[in-house]
Amino acid sequence: MKEKKAWFIDGFIGIVLIVALLLGAAFTFIQEFIVPAIVLVVLAALLGSGLTIVQPNQANVVIFFGRYLGSIRKSGLALTVPLTIRQKVSLRVRNFNSKKLKVNDVEGNPIEIASVIVFKVIDSAKATFDVDDYEEFVEIQSEAAIRHVATKYPYDTFDDHNITLRGNADVVSKELADELQERLNVAGVEVIEARLTHLAYSTEIASAMLQRQQAAAVLSARKKIVEGAVSMAQMAVEQLASNGTIELDEERKVNMVNNLMVAIISDRGTQPVINTGSLY
């Protein structure tokens, strides 16, 4: 199905025609022309059945004995084909807040995740005829898309090159919106925005995962500190060698590098030992 424009005219013109037919019916009835009067009344009733009111940001789907004739989007009073059913479809922007879903991330950790979906209907024919209930369809497909996207990434990691649910919310939201749009095209719905509103470890593993995060953070920090300490020690040895002020043999170089590494990497402030020379 694809939306098309239904035939209609200004509803006030229809009211004028209906009033004219009723006046004609009254006049012919006074003249004792019963059959023409009845015909005019029937015609007025048929025209009256075609009157419909379209609200702003709303579409009226016109159905004539099971056949789709088109949709009316122009707001106001309209006169369309008589004896038709007009089904109203809202074109307004809507929000859908998903429930907190418990899923497993790519590493198998159970997490709780929820999102808000902003959408609107752009094709009233698809929303009416291609799915049973497009609002329920949006709800079910949103939850399915959230589950699928959540299982593709880890909740968190200390590797800057990996995409995570917590650290790359914009990327995850963009992928969620794209996947949801593919699912909702059949219903004539446009996804305007999809954002994560809740993201956390499940209660049964939250404490353990917090300890794991702390341990991973300590290891990551230690790695950075060691890399910086090695670079600083190497730079100090090279600078002393290039200046030529102090000549160090291999043993003294090793001792100096060892002292620098201990001073930089140690958690607590180091206490220097000053060599004042021998008294004897």
Rank of each mutant, 00 (worst) to 15 (best):
L22N: 09
L199M: 06
M261N: 01
M209T: 00
R195K: 15
Q239H: 13
N185Y: 06
F33K: 14
E139G: 07
I117Q: 04
V172H: 08
N95T: 15
E190W: 09
Y68M: 08
V62R: 00
S266M: 10
G48L: 10
A145H: 02
G66K: 06
L17P: 07
L176P: 05
K152Q: 10
D123T: 00
V54G: 07
A145I: 05
D130Y: 00
K100C: 15
T28F: 11
N185F: 05
E3G: 01
Q55S: 06
V81R: 04
Y280A: 06
A144N: 15
S71N: 01
R268F: 12
Q239I: 11
A114K: 05
L101D: 06
G24C: 02
S124H: 00
L51F: 05
I111P: 01
K120N: 02
V186E: 10
L51S: 03
G48T: 13
K2D: 04
T270I: 07
Y68C: 10
V89W: 01
S202T: 07
V81D: 07
L180E: 05
E3R: 00
A217Y: 09
W7P: 07
I34Y: 10
N57D: 13
S231C: 12
M256L: 07
L77N: 01
V39M: 03
L46T: 03
N109D: 04
P82D: 12
N243W: 10
Y155P: 04
V254E: 13
A144G: 11
F158A: 02
Q271G: 04
A37K: 09
S115H: 13
V189H: 00
L260I: 09
V41W: 15
N109P: 03
I140E: 11
R268V: 11
T270G: 02
I34M: 09
D249V: 01
I264L: 10
I15L: 13
D170R: 08
L43M: 13
M235R: 15
I274N: 00
T151K: 13
V16N: 12
V61A: 01
A78V: 15
T28I: 06
K102F: 07
A26I: 09
L184Q: 07
I30W: 08
V89G: 01
G188K: 00
Q211H: 10
M235G: 14
I72H: 02
K74M: 09
V106H: 12
I146R: 09
D249T: 02
A200L: 04
R252N: 15
V89P: 03
F29T: 06
I53D: 10
V118M: 09
T80W: 14
N60E: 14
